[in-house]
């Protein structure tokens, strides 16, 4: 019954990386203390923790702002991306004519066009959101399009034999076939939405009530509040990890019964 914890796969999966993290923090803390490195150069983990607590109100506000842009951008990227994919698979002509522009959007560095967008769009939240959408949308489009095309040709033959409408073919065959690809796209895109939001904030440099985590980092840098800078960085990273975990969980739930990626292999 009571197998040693070290044999428990789940425990090892969480415990091992956690142990590494704690060790790194410990070494970091001790090194900083031993060499008496000043806080404004390299803050110790304890300094950062203190900042997280004492600057919590302003950091939390900034986090909410960044989250708002991230989620808004992610949602728009998913909706517009899926719509574009559905359009692309309707005809080779549509895909040939429009796909290069999706690629164009992907390869243009967002920092290069963000200033323009910020000038054109008055509302800061929307300006930032648009930048983040541009960064996040491509994986959704390319993965979903690939998925909608990756249909078992024999199943497709069968559908054709029953003279199925395109709509039925889409609903019963193409969309389910595309799900694993779509979820793959979600994983990448969710992280990119966050990166897009942060990069856009950097470029916009929006302060005041609209300030996000990127602005916190900029501001703390100017003021040499390096522990706060690290605290903001940690919040961004945590957000990214949570987003990714959420996507993995969703994809596992949706695919666990049938797709290889979500199967628990029993030996």
């Amino acid at each position: 019954m009571n197998a040693p914890l070290i044999r428990n796969e789940r425990f090892v999966q969480i415990g091992a990386p956690l142990l590494v993290g704690v060790l790194v923090l410990l070494v970091w803390q001790l090194t900083v203390m031993a060499f008496e490195v000043p806080k404004y150069l390299v803050p110790s983990p304890v300094d950062i923790g203190q900042s997280l607590v004492s600057d919590f109100p302003s950091l939390f506000n900034a986090l909410l702002m960044t989250l708002k842009v991230t989620f808004l951008a992610f949602a728009i990227a998913v909706m517009v991306g899926v719509a574009a994919s559905l359009l692309f698979v309707q005809s080779k002509w549509i895909e040939i004519s429009l796909f290069p522009y999706a690629v164009l959007m992907q390869v243009t560095p967002v920092v290069a066009i963000a200033p323009l967008i910020i000038i054109w769009v008055d509302d800061t939240t929307w300006a930032l959101t648009i930048c983040a959408v541009i960064v996040a949308i491509f994986p959704i489009i390319s993965n979903t399009t690939l998925g909608l095309r990756s249909v078992d040709p024999n199943l497709l033959s069968m559908f054709r034999m029953y003279r199925t409408s395109r709509w039925q073919e889409l609903m019963r065959l193409r969309i389910p076939s595309a799900l694993p690809y779509f979820f793959g796209g979600l994983r990448i895109s969710s992280g990119l939405a966050l990166i897009g939001a942060v990069v856009a904030e950097f470029v916009a440099g929006t302060g005041g009530a609209q300030a996000g985590l990127a602005y916190m980092i900029l501001q703390s840098g100017y003021n040499l509040q390096i522990p706060k800078m690290f605290a903001a960085l940690i919040l961004i990273t945590l957000t990214g990890i949570l987003l990714f975990a959420l996507m993995v969980w969703m994809s596992d739930r949706a695919l666990r019964n049938w797709h290889e990626s979500a199967l628990k292999v029993e030996h």
């Binding site: 078992d152 024999n154 033959s157 034999m161 389910p176 049938w258 797709h259």
Partner: peptide, 14 residues
């Protein structure tokens, strides 16, 4: 008319 393929060709999600 019905067709049976070499592989079972089932919808894995159903």
């Amino acid at each position: 008319l019905a067709f049976v393929f070499q592989n079972a060709t089932l919808m894995p999600w159903a």
